[in-house]
Amino acid sequence: MNKNGPVIIIEDDSEDKILLKEVFKKHTYPNEIIYFSDGQKALDFLIEEDVLPFLILSDINMPKLNGFELRKKIYEDARLQEKCIPYLFFSTAASQQYVIDAYSLSAQGFFVKQSTFGELEKTIVLIMEYWKRCAAPNNF
């Protein structure tokens, strides 16, 4: 985890993407925000680019490679695993089984997308502040 690295957001819903952009714009975090509309594009980026992201916020239901499939591929890739990138699910598709599946893949969190801008903002701020304070093996 690189606290100054980019935040990777994997989101295929254009309205959710607009709201997330507004939250990050309002709070002016120093991290670059990189959006992908599907898991395969995000995986290609993580494999091909020499980048150490701060964290990944991933929807579940996406085209090509869904959030669970992406998490599994990252988890099984030794080179990506060494980067210690926090992987958080951020989805409206919340069920007990989805949460169990997420944590079975060693996700570091599962957050339900809030329906109002204010609640979405609170969640994003909480996530960012938590991970900014968290230590990771590659921070030393």
Rank of each mutant, 00 (worst) to 15 (best):
N2I: 08
K3F: 02
K3C: 09
N4M: 10
G5F: 01
G5N: 04
V7I: 15
I8K: 05
I8N: 02
I9M: 05
I9R: 01
I10S: 05
I10M: 04
D12H: 10
D12C: 08
S14E: 06
E15F: 11
D16T: 10
K17V: 12
L19I: 14
L20S: 13
L20I: 15
L20D: 04
K21V: 01
E22R: 10
E22T: 15
F24N: 08
H27A: 07
H27M: 12
H27R: 14
H27P: 06
H27L: 10
T28V: 01
P30G: 10
P30S: 08
I33L: 06
I34M: 04
I34S: 04
Y35P: 01
F36Y: 05
F36I: 10
F36M: 05
S37M: 11
D38Q: 11
G39C: 06
Q40E: 14
K41R: 13
L43G: 06
F45A: 00
F45H: 13
L46P: 12
I47T: 12
I47K: 14
I47S: 04
E48R: 10
E48A: 13
E49C: 07
E49M: 09
D50K: 12
D50G: 05
V51L: 09
V51T: 05
P53R: 12
L55K: 03
I56H: 12
I56W: 02
L57E: 06
D59R: 09
D59Q: 08
I60L: 03
I60R: 00
I60M: 01
I60Y: 00
I60V: 07
P63K: 06
P63I: 11
P63V: 11
K64A: 08
K64R: 14
K64W: 02
N66Y: 03
N66L: 09
G67F: 04
G67Q: 02
F68E: 07
E69P: 00
R71Q: 12
K72C: 06
I74L: 14
Y75V: 04
Y75L: 15
A78T: 09
R79Y: 01
R79A: 13
L80P: 05
Q81M: 09
E82G: 02
K83R: 15
K83G: 11
C84H: 14
I85T: 14
Y87D: 11
L88R: 03
F90L: 15
F90I: 05
F90Y: 14
F90Q: 06
S91H: 07
T92R: 05
A93I: 00
A93M: 02
A94D: 09
A94P: 01
Q96V: 04
Q97M: 08
Y98R: 00
Y98I: 00
I100H: 00
I100K: 08
I100D: 09
D101T: 09
A102F: 00
S104L: 01
L105E: 07
S106P: 02
Q108L: 05
Q108T: 00
F111H: 07
V112L: 09
V112C: 04
Q114Y: 02
T116K: 03
T116Y: 01
F117V: 02
G118D: 15
G118A: 15
L120G: 01
L120I: 13
E121W: 09
E121D: 14
I127S: 12
I127F: 12
Y130W: 01
K132A: 08
R133M: 13
R133A: 15
C134Y: 13
C134H: 10
A136E: 03
P137F: 03
N138W: 02
N138I: 04
N139W: 10
N139S: 05
F140Y: 09
